Simulated scan of single mutants.
Amino acid sequence: MPPLTGDPKQHPPSEFQDSLSGSCLCGSITVTINDSELFTRPRGHLCHCSNCRKVAGSFVSSNLLIEADKVTIDDRDGTLKTYEDRATGSGNPVYRTFCSVDGNPVKSETQAYPGKVILKMGMMPRIPQPEYEGFGLHRHEWQGKHDGVTSFKTKWAGPDREEMP
């Protein structure tokens, strides 16, 4: 039997002091985050909105909102495609970028966060502990709570965010 891959514990946070890189399933797209603070404190967020769940193919999406200039995306084989998602609560489009060969989600962009990208962290060998959880009202009743992660009823950022009790 071949050795199992993907155990994040095989990658100590100290391995990513300056940057963190991950790739899509077929290896065509590589994303590198150049940020020395990725593992110095909780970062990123979990999202339970239906669109993020669909893109992640799971009950939750692990995301990192970060400045676009800290991210490098290499599209070796030209497989990067973008879908304009207009089925959003705000009515503003979210541009969801993915690998057109394997379907791996890569990032999302929206006018709500100018100069930033929302990276889909499932492609990374290790994910920083999340700081926030969005759309907590949409969590399944069987999900456990995450210690140290603040949960918001819907939006986790912006002036109209409301923390869950």
Rank of each mutant, 00 (worst) to 15 (best):
R96L: 02
M164Y: 04
Y95V: 00
V117R: 13
C47A: 06
G44E: 02
R86Q: 08
K153S: 09
V60C: 15
H45I: 01
C52E: 09
M121D: 07
R43Q: 15
R76E: 14
N104L: 05
E141K: 13
V106T: 04
S19R: 13
V149Q: 09
R96G: 02
P159D: 12
D160Y: 12
G89M: 09
P42N: 10
E133W: 01
E162M: 08
G103V: 03
R139S: 02
W142H: 14
R139K: 13
P2A: 15
S108R: 05
G136A: 07
G27K: 08
I66H: 03
M124Y: 03
E109D: 11
V55D: 04
A112P: 00
P93Y: 04
D77G: 03
R41E: 15
G78Y: 01
P114Q: 10
F152Y: 15
C24L: 10
H140V: 01
V31K: 05
F98C: 01
A112S: 12
T110D: 04
D69L: 08
I33S: 14
L80A: 11
P165F: 02
R96Y: 01
S58Q: 10
E131Y: 11
P105S: 06
S50V: 06
C52R: 13
V94N: 12
T72C: 07
E163I: 10
P125S: 07
Y113C: 11
C24T: 01
E162N: 05
E163H: 03
T154A: 12
A68Y: 03
H138A: 15
E131C: 13
D18V: 06
P8M: 05
W142G: 12
L4Y: 03
D7N: 15
K54G: 03
T72N: 15
D77Q: 13
S50G: 03
H138F: 14
P105R: 05
C24Y: 03
V71P: 07
M121Q: 10
G78L: 06
D160R: 07
K116V: 00
S21D: 02
S19G: 05
S19D: 07
V94Y: 09
K153Q: 14
S61L: 11
G91F: 09
S14C: 09
E133F: 00
T72H: 12
F39T: 08
L119A: 06
N92M: 13
G103P: 07
S90F: 05
V94G: 02
N34R: 14
P105Q: 02
K155V: 00
G122K: 10
Y95T: 00
C47T: 01
D147S: 14
P2W: 01
C52G: 10
K145S: 14
E162A: 11
M123C: 06
T97P: 00
C26Q: 08
G27Q: 05
S100M: 03
W142D: 13
